[in-house]
Computed example of a mutant assay.
Amino acid sequence: MKQEEFDKLKKAGEIAQKVIAYAKEIVKKEVPLLEIANKIDKKIEELGARPAFPVNLSINEVAAHFTPNFNDQKVAKGLIKVDIGIQIDGYVADTAFSIDLDNSEENKKLIEAAKIGLDAALEKFGVGVEIGEIGAAVEEAIKEKGFVPVRNLTGHQIKRFDLHAGMSIPSYATSQTEKLEEGVYAVEPFSTNGAGRVRDGNPSNIYHLTNEGNVRDNFARKVLNFIQEEYSSLPFCSRWIYNEFGSKGILALRQIEQAGLLHHYPQLVEMNRGIVAQAEHTIILKGNEKIITTKN
């Protein structure tokens, strides 16, 4: 890894820490999710970075992949997961926390289980470690708290402009013997009092470009060019398109999706509608060094 790349990754992590601290101040019960998302977007830009993906504000049984649209009326409540990505020139920091807005003992225990699962993974993490060992450590830690990990959500390797690159990091015991190599990883256990699996739910308002191509409508081509230049292969959301182009931009987004050029992420919902908590950090493995960029 070149020093310039390392420095940008570190800087993204430092900004992520500041954004997380800010988010913990503004995420309050009954505050509109749209207000929270817009404030987080603005804070990231004020700190000299850009979002690596739209902030996820996923509540209760929705484990991941929800962000408010431009006219969303939903408010913060329950157990909310706040998943934030920061990018500097395509170098990414990915981090998340969960907060209980219902003063629920069950929610608090779930959040603690996710944190302990993350700590167990980070303790094991290192070049040459088998990923199955990491999954086993996470599962054991979460089960000791009386819950189960979400088995079909994993941590992931990160590369420039690529959030899910190559290796996946399980959160349960497996026989996988693939070993960690130098690089950047997001480690993100999810704990639940449900079945321990998620299914696809409603559309999330989050997209990314999947195919090259074009659209017939001139305005839709303008929006497509904007998406290509602004977001490259990273995820974006309908809210950002509306902010740039207004309601015509939303119509253009539908045309681009219908042309088969976009993937529209579904919300990820716990199979038994169990409550889900999440904890996440980004880690760089560089020789014998283990640098958690998103942790103080």
Rank of each mutant, 00 (worst) to 15 (best):
residue 225 N to M: 04
residue 257 E to V: 05
residue 220 A to K: 03
residue 226 F to R: 09
residue 229 E to W: 02
residue 271 M to Y: 12
residue 251 L to G: 08
residue 198 V to L: 09
residue 272 N to V: 00
residue 269 V to C: 07
residue 163 L to Y: 11
residue 131 I to L: 10
residue 272 N to W: 03
residue 249 G to E: 00
residue 236 F to S: 01
residue 222 K to H: 11
residue 160 R to H: 02
residue 268 L to D: 07
residue 190 F to Y: 13
residue 148 V to S: 08
residue 237 C to A: 15
residue 234 L to Y: 07
residue 139 E to H: 08
residue 254 R to F: 00
residue 203 P to M: 05
residue 170 P to T: 09
residue 203 P to Q: 06
residue 258 Q to A: 14
residue 229 E to I: 04
residue 164 H to G: 04
residue 227 I to D: 06
residue 176 Q to T: 13
residue 269 V to Q: 08
residue 244 E to G: 00
residue 256 I to A: 04
residue 141 A to P: 10
residue 161 F to G: 03
residue 194 G to F: 05
residue 193 N to A: 08
residue 216 R to G: 15
residue 206 I to A: 13
residue 215 V to D: 01
residue 154 T to N: 09
residue 268 L to A: 10
residue 159 K to D: 14
residue 266 P to G: 09
residue 142 I to D: 01
residue 246 G to R: 12
residue 205 N to F: 07
residue 267 Q to P: 07
residue 238 S to I: 13
residue 159 K to W: 06
residue 193 N to P: 05
residue 204 S to D: 10
residue 240 W to E: 14
residue 209 L to M: 12
residue 193 N to I: 06
residue 197 R to Q: 01
residue 141 A to M: 11
residue 200 D to K: 15
residue 134 I to D: 00
residue 173 A to H: 07
residue 257 E to Q: 10
residue 152 N to Q: 05
residue 139 E to Q: 15
residue 189 P to L: 05
residue 141 A to K: 10
residue 184 V to L: 11
residue 145 K to A: 06
residue 134 I to Q: 02
residue 182 E to H: 00
residue 226 F to T: 01
residue 137 A to S: 09
residue 155 G to Q: 02
residue 203 P to V: 09
residue 202 N to F: 10
residue 172 Y to E: 10
residue 215 V to E: 03
residue 233 S to C: 00
residue 154 T to Q: 07
residue 166 G to R: 04
residue 250 I to M: 08
residue 206 I to Q: 06
residue 222 K to I: 07
residue 244 E to T: 12
residue 218 N to G: 08
residue 184 V to I: 13
residue 192 T to L: 06
residue 211 N to F: 07
residue 270 E to S: 07
residue 153 L to Q: 08
residue 178 E to A: 13
residue 192 T to A: 04
residue 142 I to N: 05
residue 179 K to L: 09
residue 186 A to C: 14
residue 163 L to S: 14
residue 187 V to A: 04
residue 208 H to W: 05
residue 264 H to F: 05
residue 237 C to N: 15
residue 234 L to H: 13
residue 249 G to M: 00
residue 225 N to V: 00
residue 138 V to A: 09
residue 263 H to L: 14
residue 202 N to Y: 13
residue 161 F to Y: 15
residue 132 G to N: 04
residue 186 A to M: 11
residue 225 N to S: 14
residue 262 L to S: 11
residue 245 F to C: 12
residue 131 I to V: 14
residue 158 I to A: 01
residue 165 A to S: 14
residue 161 F to P: 05
residue 187 V to G: 00
residue 258 Q to Y: 10
residue 254 R to H: 02
residue 154 T to A: 14
residue 162 D to H: 14
residue 176 Q to L: 15
residue 230 E to P: 01
residue 219 F to A: 08
residue 204 S to M: 12
residue 255 Q to P: 02
residue 184 V to N: 11
residue 168 S to H: 13
residue 243 N to V: 03
residue 231 Y to G: 12
residue 212 E to H: 11
residue 228 Q to I: 10
residue 214 N to T: 15
residue 158 I to F: 02
residue 181 E to Y: 07
